[in-house]
Amino acid sequence: MVMQQAGAEPAPRRKGSRTPVGSTSLAHIAQLAEVSEATVSRVLNRKYGVSAATRAAVEDALRQVGYERPMDNELVLMITPNLRNPIFALQADRIENELSPHGLKSIICQVYPGTPQERDYVEALIDSGVAAIVFLSASNTLTKADHRVVQLIESRGTPYVSINGGFPDTDAPVVSTDDWRAAELAVGHLHDLGHRRIGMLAGPVDNIPADRRVDGFIQAMERRGIDDADDFVVRKHFNVEDGQQATAALIAQGVTGIVASSDEMALGGYRAAERAGLRVPQDLSIIGYDDSPMLDFTAPPLTTVRQQTDRIAENVGRIVTALISKRAVGTEEILIDPELRLRGSTAPPARA
């Protein structure tokens, strides 16, 4: 493509074509942005030492000449707490399927959210051709975590997207499951079956999805005239062992139905019910959350609220490719409706 002189109308480009940036165009972009060619190069390569105002001026000049940063052979860093939980592995797989047709390659990093390990991964890889970063339920879900990793990312001008909760004081895009709707679906199902003493196995305090699910649970119960719902919320971690402990506490309070904040917690509820001499669902109904694979093969098959991983991945893929191409995206959080998957772990409460 032949570069136009300053002030001239740009030549038309074919749809999908990209403007190359060579020595001539670097000079032209530098002239438009009123900076040096070295500064333009630093912005293109996401290097340190460029102020936010200067970076914005260069990006504006790039848009004027119709330049799109190529996505071929570029990397997208996905940061997740672990891949042992099937829902994280499934979500990462769905996102990778959305990105790969655009020539983007994913690197999945398992980290303990909000720790130096997370920052170390980002710092080690961000200069290796990382085009964008996806926080897949990592430190973006923790309200009181160390969020200096965001400062590092923004200093390099690297776009990022968060799933299931966003970082405070940033306008980066967020795609989340509607946790308030998830609680409404679960509570509504148990209430329609006749349950009135319903408890919740909730995630830890200051975890954004966990806090939202608790808020949604209490609201759903209050809409049905049950005002003491917060007395039946037990906050633990999203695993089998904590689910078992929390269920034991709720059984002691006489609940007949349980809404769990993860499928793993729900399966811990199965174990607690068995040890208390109760049957699921005859004596205790349990609803999970996530719709992890293999739930049809539990005994009984677990009713759960399903996160729509395909819909989340579609939105994340669309946003990531738009950000890399410097197209505008909305900053309002996108909430994806969950679905209730009925199986065999819920039933009307037994007669006293």
Rank of each mutant, 00 (worst) to 15 (best):
M1V: 03
A6V: 07
E9Q: 09
R14A: 14
K15W: 04
T19I: 13
V21K: 00
V21Q: 00
V21W: 00
H28R: 10
A30I: 10
A33C: 08
E34A: 14
K47A: 13
V50P: 02
A52M: 04
A52N: 02
R55P: 01
E59D: 10
D60S: 14
D60H: 11
Q64S: 02
V65I: 15
P70N: 01
E74D: 01
V76I: 10
I79D: 14
P81M: 10
L83Y: 04
L83H: 03
Q91R: 12
A92L: 02
L99E: 07
K105C: 00
I108Y: 13
P113S: 03
G114M: 06
T115F: 06
P116V: 04
E118V: 04
D120N: 03
D120Q: 10
E123P: 00
D127N: 09
S128A: 04
G129H: 03
G129R: 01
A138K: 04
T141E: 09
H147S: 07
V149T: 12
E154M: 05
E154C: 01
S155D: 14
S162F: 08
G165D: 03
G165W: 11
F167H: 12
T177W: 00
R181V: 09
A182H: 01
A186E: 02
A186V: 09
L190W: 05
R196S: 10
M200H: 15
M200Y: 03
A202S: 14
P204D: 07
P204R: 14
P209A: 07
R212H: 14
A220W: 06
M221G: 01
R224C: 08
G225I: 05
D228Y: 10
D231K: 11
D231C: 03
V234K: 13
V234P: 08
R235I: 09
N239P: 01
G243W: 11
Q244E: 15
Q244K: 11
Q245G: 15
Q253G: 03
I258T: 06
V259S: 02
A260T: 01
S262C: 04
E264I: 00
L267I: 15
R271Y: 04
E274R: 07
A276C: 06
Q282M: 06
D283K: 13
D283E: 13
D283W: 14
Y289T: 00
L295D: 03
D296R: 13
T298Q: 04
A299D: 14
P301K: 06
L302E: 11
T303Q: 13
T304I: 02
Q308V: 12
D310Y: 05
A313Q: 08
E314T: 07
E314D: 15
L323P: 02
I324Q: 00
I324V: 15
A328M: 03
V329F: 05
R341Y: 00
P348S: 11
A350H: 12
